[in-house]
């Protein structure tokens, strides 16, 4: 028995396919991440799970209830944080929270334990209008609002988008704490590096899942050897490596370029030689483990080749 069971979901808007045969299960108590760029279909999927949209084809069960027939039961037990933080800008922090508590038939006091750790951070500003809060604080308030009725399942649609890295870190800390309290979390994000913080992830692109597994397994499945290359002129290095005959892929990755070879094993000497000849005498080459973004890009390319 899973908390969310999705099989063969399709959804189209006019001519565009937003979701194309999506199936997955979410286990009780885990953090399940949907990782993919804008337009991949994450929001559509979450709206189906929160009973806001009806799929064209396929079934979805949330907490054992069908998202089409039993939508009322689901709506009572799910906490949903929509993208763009659904807060009332003209209400104060306290009023927002109170409002959401009331419409879910509860009070702030009743479930204060659950939100306490998050709420104390914004409590000093409780008389301030939500519209005047910084992005990080809005995000925290929105999370409190989604939690106030002690939901069994928390569905968070891009809670960290547009938020700075520090606030993102803090936000993930909060999710970890909630997980420990037994709340299952379904979260979507365009930031690949957040995948590592999930128990399991689904990589999604153009309405299709590329892979569903634990982040470790996805990375382990990546068999190519990645070389990190850097030199003084990174752009020129990139151009030169794109022309190198053994190059399978080369992409900027932080301060290094990630290079993979067409052959099973890259020849370091040969590569060094090539770079020297092309004016990169002081280049540095290291081997580096793949991260989720390498995997994502590789899977994207594979998918494109299939099409």
């Amino acid at each position: 028995m899973h908390i969310v069971e999705v099989s063969g979901i399709h959804k189209s808007y006019k001519s565009t396919k937003a979701l194309d045969d999506i199936s997955f299960d979410v286990n009780y108590g885990e953090i399940f991440g949907f990782i993919g760029p804008d337009g991949a279909g994450k929001t559509t999927l979450f709206r189906i799970l929160t009973t806001l949209l009806i799929p064209d084809k396929g079934n979805a069960l949330v907490l054992g209830n069908d998202v089409v027939k039993d939508y009322k039961k689901i709506r009572k037990r799910v906490g949903y944080m929509a993208g763009r933080f659904s807060l009332y800008q003209d209400l104060t922090v306290e009023e927002n929270l109170k409002f959401y508590a009331t419409i879910f038939g509860t009070t702030i006091e009743e479930n204060y334990d659950l939100i306490k750790e998050i709420y104390v951070q914004i409590e000093p500003f409780k008389k301030r209008r939500a519209g005047k809060l910084s992005g990080g604080m809005k995000q925290k308030l929105a999370l409190c609002c989604a939690l106030i009725h002690k939901p069994d399942l928390l569905i968070l649609d891009e809670p960290t988008t547009g938020v700075d890295p520090v606030s993102r870190n803090e936000f993930w800390d909060m999710l970890m704490n909630l997980k420990e309290q037994g709340i299952t979390i379904l979260v979507s994000t365009p930031y690949m590096n957040e995948a590592a913080l999930c128990d399991r992830v689904a990589l999604i692109q153009n309405g299709k899942t590329l892979s569903i597994d634990t982040p470790e397994n996805i990375i382990n499945r990546y068999t190519k050897i990645i070389l990190g290359v850097r030199s003084d002129n990174m752009y020129d290095l990139l151009l030169k490596l794109q022309k190198y005959k053994y190059t399978h892929s080369v992409q900027p990755f932080g301060e290094y370029l990630h290079y993979t070879d067409k052959r099973e094993k890259p020849n370091l000497e040969e590569l060094k030689d090539y770079l020297n000849k092309n004016g990169h005498t002081s280049s540095e080459i290291i081997t580096t483990p793949p991260d989720i973004e390498d995997c994502f890009m590789e899977l994207m390319e594979e998918k494109e080749h299939v099409n």
Partner: peptide, 13 residues
């Protein structure tokens, strides 16, 4: 427009 309707609809209201 503000996206709050989504949350209202998902609530037991």
């Amino acid at each position: 427009e503000m996206g709050t309707m989504e949350v209202l609809l998902v609530s037991p209201l």
